[in-house]
Write a protein that binds this DNA or RNA. Structure first.
Length: 317
RNA sequence: GCACAGGUGGGUGAGUGGUUAAAGCCGACAGACUGUAAAUCUGUUCCUCCUAGCGAGGUACGGAGGUUCGAAUCCUCCCCUGUGCA
């Protein structure tokens, strides 16, 4: 370990798929070591979205300070860049207070943006995107890909011709910066400095995870997800970003009469399961992660993790 | 009991004599991911073998026979399911 990081403060990162018990675990860690929790879940950042996001409830939030939770207006957009900036500021403040920062979340891109940084590229341009989308609509399915190939061949080789959002971002970067996106990538990223990062991964058995996800999604509907969705869609319009996400999307379809309640629950469960799987694909690549084959609310898993964090904190001194 | 309709791979559902191990969709599994990522996209998906290939063999469209060079597809009988009439 490099000398300058040997005495750097510890940063605990808890990652894992949805339903793996990250919240319960983070609370234990924060309580025990005077920690503050930094949310790293894209949808949980939006205010007023409660039931469908499985945010920590009020009693849970009282157990430790929480950050980047409930901090955005439902009509706003958050990007990975926004998140990384806010999270880094939050981390600085926690450090000044002498507390342990515990980053908890399931949004892989946000976590990477925070820890590794993003490349130095231009921000989104809504106008440009609108133009691209419109042109793509009447010029056929591979139009965007052909445009990108002309602007940045190696980017086009990496991005599949069907992957519209990534093609649009790449074209946007090339056009706005007047450089190839892949050239900008070569300039590197600004990774988070000054912390000893301890990544703890939760990886419960797939079958058990899916069962838990099914149960939880059903409970969300039983606890009033439909009512919450109805209210939020009235207030912010059906197009509000968080209303497009897991559970809310299906609830909205049910409200519109496109899905029966039973079908909506099934679809929501399915979407959550698929999401959990995608998260695992992402997190498996996360470097230097210590994996635990259980749920974060399992006392044995908690005990083991508490011990390991303890050891790291002692080693820090 | 009679009359129709139908039984296809994990599910759904095409296919009605031959490049059909069987479309498509879903699921499952695996993968990608550099500013809306709870998004978006890709691959594999009967079994066995290898020199790992538009490779070889074996099974497979309810069951048993049959017709045919060749059957998921045609014929016979049987077993199930749905609907209508008794």
């Amino acid at each position: 370990m490099p000398a300058e990081t040997a005495f750097a403060p510890l940063l605990v990162v808890i990652l894992g798929p949805t339903g793996s018990g990250k919240t319960a675990l983070s609370l234990e860690v924060a309580e025990r070591f005077q920690g503050e929790i930094v949310n790293c879940d894209s949808v949980a950042m939006y205010r007023e979205f409660e039931i469908g996001t499985a945010k920590p409830n009020l009693a849970e939030r009282a157990r430790a300070p929480h950050h980047l939770l409930d901090c955005m207006d439902p009509t706003s957009f958050v990007t990975a860049g926004d998140y990384a900036r806010m999270a880094r500021q939050t981390l600085d403040q926690i450090r000044l207070r002498g507390n342990l920062a515990v980053v908890v979340g399931g949004t892989g891109l946000y976590l990477r943006a925070l820890l590794d940084g993003l490349f130095h590229g231009p921000e989104r341009s809504e106008a440009l995107r609108e133009r691209l989308r419109r042109r793509a609509a009447d010029r056929g399915p591979h139009h965007l890909w052909r445009v990108l190939r002309r602007l940045d061949l190696s980017a086009a080789e990496k991005i599949h011709a069907h992957d519209t959002p990534k093609l649009i971002r790449a074209i946007e970067v090339c056009l706005a910066s007047r450089q190839k996106m892949t050239d900008l990538w070569k300039q590197g990223r600004e990774s988070l400095q000054g912390y000893r990062i301890m990544r703890l991964g939760l990886n419960p058995a797939r079958e058990a995870l899916y069962q838990r996800i099914n149960r939880r999604a059903q409970q969300m509907f039983a606890c009033g997800l439909l009512e919450e969705t109805r209210e939020l869609s009235h207030r912010y319009g059906e197009l509000a970003t968080p209303l497009q996400s897991l559970g809310y999307k299906q609830a909205l379809q049910c409200i519109r009469g496109e899905l029966s309640l039973e079908a909506a629950i099934k679809a929501a469960q399915q979407a959550h399961r698929n999401y959990a799987k995608r998260q695992m694909t992402w997190f498996r690549r996360e470097p230097d992660t210590t994996w635990f084959g259980g749920f974060g609310d399992d006392p044995r898993v908690q005990q083991e993790i508490l011990n390991q964090v303890q050891q790291q904190l002692v080693a820090n001194r």
